[in-house]
Computed example of a mutant assay.
Amino acid sequence: MKRLLQSLPLAGLLLILWLVLNDSLSAGHLALGAAIALTLALLAPVLRPTRARLSHPLVALRLAGHVAIDIVRSNLDVGRFILRAPRAGTPSGFLDIPLRIRDPHGLATLACIVTFTPGTVWTGHDPERNVLTLHVLDMRDPQHLTRIIQDRYERPLMEIFE
């Protein structure tokens, strides 16, 4: 019974997603969506053997605010970059960033943050050296981007997950 109660929030979100994607509130879609959502919610813990623990929720909220601001800024920067017709000499390329974070949930969150931010794409992670490889659209200042990743994102994620 406890497992069923713990699965209800995820099941509710999945049901809402199902209904939105199907653009229908019919009884059939409600019943099928509820069955699929509940089944997936009950099976979800099997897919995640290690559970994430958020130890500092205020740090997480502050990080979410920083990410939202950075996404807006990055959208504007990428728009300006594209509109000014990049020349052949505009530097873009791959950047290796050493990381300290080891928690898989923190690394997954960092991957989402980096990929959600226009102008950067997470292209790889070497777990042995713990080095993140990014593709960066505008690499005029790679040290600045490295500091942003390490100080603005990685440090709070380490507080939250480790």
Rank of each mutant, 00 (worst) to 15 (best):
L25A: 03
L25H: 00
L25W: 02
G28L: 04
G28H: 06
L30G: 04
L30K: 01
A31T: 10
L32F: 05
G33Y: 00
A35S: 14
A35C: 13
A35Q: 10
I36W: 06
I36A: 13
I36K: 01
L38K: 00
T39D: 09
T39E: 09
T39I: 10
L40M: 07
L40I: 03
L40Q: 03
L40N: 01
A41N: 02
A41Q: 00
L43R: 10
A44D: 06
P45I: 04
P45Y: 07
P45V: 06
V46G: 09
V46H: 12
V46R: 13
V46F: 14
L47Q: 09
R48Q: 14
R48Y: 15
R48H: 14
P49T: 08
T50L: 13
R51A: 15
R51Q: 15
A52R: 02
R53G: 11
R53K: 14
L54N: 11
L54F: 09
S55G: 14
S55E: 10
P57W: 11
P57F: 10
A60C: 14
A60V: 06
A60G: 13
L61A: 15
R62E: 15
R62V: 15
R62F: 13
R62Y: 15
R62S: 14
L63S: 10
L63V: 11
L63Y: 08
L63E: 07
A64K: 09
A64E: 07
G65A: 15
H66L: 13
H66A: 14
V67E: 09
V67M: 10
V67N: 08
V67R: 05
A68T: 14
A68M: 11
A68E: 09
I69G: 12
I69N: 11
I71K: 07
I71M: 11
V72W: 14
V72C: 11
R73Q: 15
R73N: 14
S74D: 12
S74Y: 08
N75E: 08
L76Y: 09
D77E: 12
D77L: 03
D77F: 03
G79F: 04
G79M: 08
G79A: 13
G79L: 09
R80N: 00
R80D: 02
F81C: 01
F81A: 02
F81M: 02
F81G: 01
I82V: 11
L83M: 08
R84V: 00
R84S: 04
R84H: 05
R84K: 10
P86M: 11
R87S: 06
P91T: 05
S92K: 03
F94D: 00
F94Y: 08
F94A: 03
F94C: 04
L95K: 02
D96S: 07
I97E: 05
I97Q: 04
P98F: 03
P98Y: 05
P98T: 05
P98W: 07
R100I: 02
R100N: 06
I101Q: 02
I101V: 11
R102E: 04
R102A: 04
D103L: 01
D103H: 06
D103G: 03
D103Y: 00
D103A: 04
